[in-house]
Computed example of a mutant assay.
Amino acid sequence: MTHEAESRRAAVRRLERGTPLYRVLDVTRPKAWTRLDGDVRHAVRHGALAPSHGWLTGVHGPGWRGLWDRAADRVRETPDEARLALALCDPDGRIRQAALAHAAGRPEVLSLVAVRATDWVQPVRARALRLLREALPGASAETLAVTVPVMLRLGGRLRGGPIVELLDGLLRAGDAARVTTLLLGCRDGATRRAALSAALDRGLYDGLGLALVAAGDPDPAVQERAASAAVAADEADSTVPVLLGSRFGRVRAAGVTALRGAGRHAEAEPYLYDRSGRTRACARWVLRQGGHDPVAAYRAACTGPDVPDRAPLGLGECGTRSVDAPLLRELTERGGGRVRASAVAGLRLLDAVEPARMRALLDDPEPGVVREARRALYG
């Protein structure tokens, strides 16, 4: 048995012992909820789990599987979330349907209610969808951040159409603050992408707001789309500083590109030495559009007293082998470790590698230089 399989079985056993859901699984991972549903069903069917659902019927013992639909109202106690979760995942559709009667007002199991909204049993599916429609408009930000990612994944299921419609209504016609909350506070990248799409369609952000989203979001798709929208907003004075200050290369590249539209071509020069290759390429393009020569700028930087770390690499990206290779070879022997490593990388890009020189650099005290020399020699 794999470690993952044993971990999932252990989660079901812990749930049987009454352990709260947030201690059994990572509730922020959408797949964890659908896996739990399948794991509980598998455990019950194969005799590894025999939960008592007497709290649904008032009858404890082996007769609980004779539950009828009308028994949903015969409640003698309020179940804890572990017992409620087990019932919501039970193989018996009558148990699942009866359990839904006790899921109202229980945000901790709303993700399982969403799973039941794609159930193969029509009455279960109908009741779950009704609960979702009632719960989502007033749900807290924390509950939405857990439930919406699950709903997004469920939308692709055979019976996921109503879930898609419900989620679309929540994002595109619901409270705008909920969209903002999901975009800025949800850990799930797919959810943030959906929220951004809704925010753009509804015009919920100005250029500065979009720039802030792009600069701070770790998801590449969100960065790309938000940054493009921020540039298109034509608010360079407020958006460009935010974009250029991002730690993400593709966002800085968008900020550099925006300099051209603002007529501020010369301001792109510092980004010729950016750690992002995409940003460096955009800086070269913007400078050329403004009538400046990026190759000349690289050559001047590489011959100056304080060579920027990535100036040799940039020269290798756009220079000429016959002219620039001698300068880069010189830089492999002087300057800081990053400059020397950058010079080796530049030589490789210019196809000007001298094997003997590269072998000598394998003994360099700077790990970056050794790494680049190995790459130049062996690919």
Rank of each mutant, 00 (worst) to 15 (best):
T147E: 03
G18Y: 07
L166A: 06
V40S: 02
L129R: 14
L313F: 11
A48H: 13
L196A: 11
D306C: 09
V113A: 07
Y378M: 02
L136S: 04
E372P: 01
T34V: 15
A72G: 13
L328F: 09
P308D: 11
L200F: 10
T279C: 15
G319E: 06
T257D: 00
P79R: 12
G47N: 11
L287G: 05
G209K: 11
L131Y: 02
A32Q: 10
L350E: 03
P305A: 15
R252I: 06
E317I: 05
R193W: 05
V307S: 02
V307Y: 00
R178T: 15
G249P: 03
L88Q: 07
R321S: 08
D219K: 10
A98T: 15
R96I: 07
S322E: 14
V59S: 03
I95H: 03
G18S: 04
C89V: 09
G379M: 13
G138L: 12
L171T: 05
L327D: 00
Q97G: 09
R225M: 09
V353K: 01
D306Y: 10
H42T: 12
T2S: 14
H265K: 01
A72W: 13
P123M: 04
V339C: 06
R275N: 05
D39K: 12
R250F: 01
R260T: 00
V12D: 00
A82T: 11
A254H: 08
H3G: 11
A311M: 05
C282V: 08
A139H: 09
A72N: 02
L315E: 02
R106T: 12
G138I: 15
A85G: 03
H3A: 14
R172D: 05
A103R: 08
E267V: 01
D175K: 12
A48G: 11
L327N: 03
E142T: 14
G249W: 05
C186H: 04
D92A: 15
A325H: 04
L350P: 01
R299G: 05
P20A: 11
V109D: 05
P241Q: 13
A226V: 14
L212V: 14
G379F: 10
D26Y: 08
V115Q: 04
A126W: 04
Y273N: 08
R8S: 04
R202K: 07
A281R: 14
E372M: 12
R96A: 04
R192G: 03
V339N: 00
R106V: 15
L49A: 03
L112I: 11
R371C: 07
C318E: 06
A236R: 01
H60M: 04
V75Q: 13
A72C: 12
A253M: 11
D90G: 06
T147H: 05
A50H: 12
A254L: 08
E317C: 05
L170G: 03
L204M: 10
Y298E: 02
A356K: 08
G346L: 10
V150N: 03
G47L: 15
C302E: 03
D364Q: 09
L328C: 09
V222I: 14
A128Q: 07
C186I: 08
C318N: 01
S140I: 12
R340F: 05
D219E: 15
C282I: 01
G335T: 12
D306T: 15
G203R: 10
A87M: 11
A345I: 03
A103N: 08
R17Q: 13
G203D: 13
G346D: 02
A227K: 01
